[in-house]
C-alpha cells in the first residue's frame, strides 16, 4: 500500500525495548558501582567515604601479584577443563544416541529426564554429600576400599590434592552433562527434519548423518554452550566452597572463592575483591571473544544469506501486493 519499500528495522528497536528497560532499571547502576570500587581505597564496613587511589591500578597490581590469586586461577582453569571436555563429549554422544531416528533407544524419554536430575538439587546438597562419601577415618568410600582389600587402614582421601580437585571436577561434570545434553537435543530438534529425510534417502549412515548434518547445524548452539560453560566454569564457587572450603591446602581454591575471601573473610577488602572481579571479567571476555572469532563466521554468513533471501522475497511480496492492489 505504501509507495516506499517496507522497512521493518524499527521493530528491531521496538522489540528490544523491554530488555533494555529492565536492564537499566535493575542492573546497570551496581555494575558501574563495582567497577568504580576497584580503583578506590574502599574497604571495611561502616565506611562512609572512599577516594581514588593515587596509583589508580594499585588494587589490580596487588591482586595479580597475590600468590593465592595466581593459584586460584590455575585451579579454576584446570578444574574447568577437566570437567568440561568430558562433559561436552558425553553430552554429544548422548545427543547422537537419543536423536537417532533409525535406532530408537527404548526408554530414552526416561533417560533424558533422569540425566538432567542432578541439576535440580542445590549444589550445596551435592557438595556436602560428596564430602561425606569420602570422609575419614570412617566413610563409605573408605569402608568400601577396605572391605575390597585395596587398603589396610583408612586413608585421609580428602587431603589428597589431586583427588580433591578431581572430585570437584567430577561433581561439576555430573551436574551439568544432562543440562548440556538437553540444550543439544533442543538444538537438534530445531534442525529442519527434511535435511535428515534427504540424507536418509541418499543412503547416509547414522554416523554420517550425525557428522554431516547434526554437528554442523549444532554450531550455533555449541557456541552458546562453550561460552556459557566458560562463564560458569570460571566463576565456579558453590561446590569448591562447600566441599572443602577451597582446601586441602588451597587445592580447590577457585577465583570466585578467592574473591569471596577478599571481601568477606574478615577484612572486607571490597576494593581488592572488585579489582579481582574485573580481572576475571576481562579474562572471561577475552576467552569468549576468541570463541566467537573461531565460530562466528558461519553464523554471520548464514544471517547474511537469510537477509538476502528476505529482501528478495520482500520485493516479490511487494510486487504481488501491488499487483493485487491494482
Amino acid at each position: 500500500m505504501r509507495r516506499k519499500g517496507v522497512s521493518y528495522a524499527k521493530y528491531g528497536y521496538i522489540f528490544s525495548i523491554p530488555f533494555v528497560l529492565a536492564y537499566i532499571v535493575f542492573q546497570l547502576y551496581p555494575l558501574l558501582f563495582t567497577t568504580i570500587i576497584g580503583f578506590t581505597d574502599f574497604k571495611g564496613i561502616g565506611r562512609t567515604d572512599f577516594k581514588f587511589l593515587e596509583d589508580i591500578f594499585a588494587n589490580f597490581k596487588s591482586v595479580i601479584k597475590n600468590p593465592s590469586f595466581q593459584k586460584s586461577l590455575g585451579n579454576t582453569v584446570g578444574m574447568w577443563i577437566v570437567n568440561f571436555i568430558p562433559q561436552i563429549l558425553l553430552a554429544l554422544l548422548l545427543t547422537a544416541w537419543f536423536t537417532n531416528n533409525r535406532r530408537k533407544i527404548k526408554g530414552q524419554g526416561f533417560f533424558k529426564v533422569v540425566f538432567y536430575m542432578p541439576n535440580i538439587i542445590t549444589q550445596a546438597t551435592i557438595a556436602i554429600l560428596f564430602s561425606t562419601l569420602f570422609a575419614y577415618p570412617t566413610g563409605p568410600v573408605n569402608s568400601l576400599l577396605q572391605s575390597l582389600g585395596f587398603i589396610d587402614a583408612p586413608i585421609y582421601l580428602l587431603l589428597n590434592k589431586t583427588l580433591a580437585r578431581g572430585i570437584v571436577s567430577f561433581i561439576q561434570f555430573w551436574m551439568w552433562y544432562g543440562y548440556t545434553m538437553i540444550i543439544f537435543i533442543s538444538g537438534v530438534l530445531g534442525i529442519n527434519p527434511e535435511l535428515f529425510e534427504a540424507a536418509e534417502i541418499d543412503g547416509a549412515t547414522s554416523r554420517q548423518a550425525f557428522f554431516k548434518i547434526t554437528l554442523p547445524n549444532l554450531r550455533t548452539i555449541m557456541l552458546f554452550t562453550l561460552v556459557t560453560s566458560l562463564i560458569g566454569g570460571l566463576n565456579m564457587f558453590d561446590v569448591p566452597k562447600l566441599f572443602q572450603a577451597g582446601g586441602p591446602d588451597s587445592a580447590t581454591l577457585t577465583a570466585a572463592t578467592f574473591i569471596y575471601n577478599q571481601a568477606f573473610s574478615g577484612s572486607y577488602l571490597y576494593n581488592r575483591a572488585s579489582a579481582a572481579s574485573l580481572i576475571m571479567f576481562v579474562i572471561i571476555s577475552i576467552c569468549s571473544a576468541t570463541l566467537f572469532l573461531i565460530m562466528y563466521d558461519r553464523d554471520a554468513a548464514k544471517l547474511r544469506k537469510q537477509e538476502r533471501k528476505l529482501i528478495k522475497s520482500l520485493k516479490k511480496a511487494e510486487k504481488e501486493t501491488r499487483r493485487m492492489g491494482k
Binding site: 551496581p30 570500587i37 562512609t48 558453590d238 569471596y260 571481601a263 568477606f264 571490597y270 575483591a273
Partner: peptide
Amino acid sequence: MKRFLALLLASLLLMSLALTGCK
C-alpha cells in the same frame, strides 16, 4: 548456572552499603 556464587552476592551486598554511605 545462575546460582553459583550465592555467597559472593553476600559480599557485594555489603559493598552496596557503602554506596549509600558515600554520599
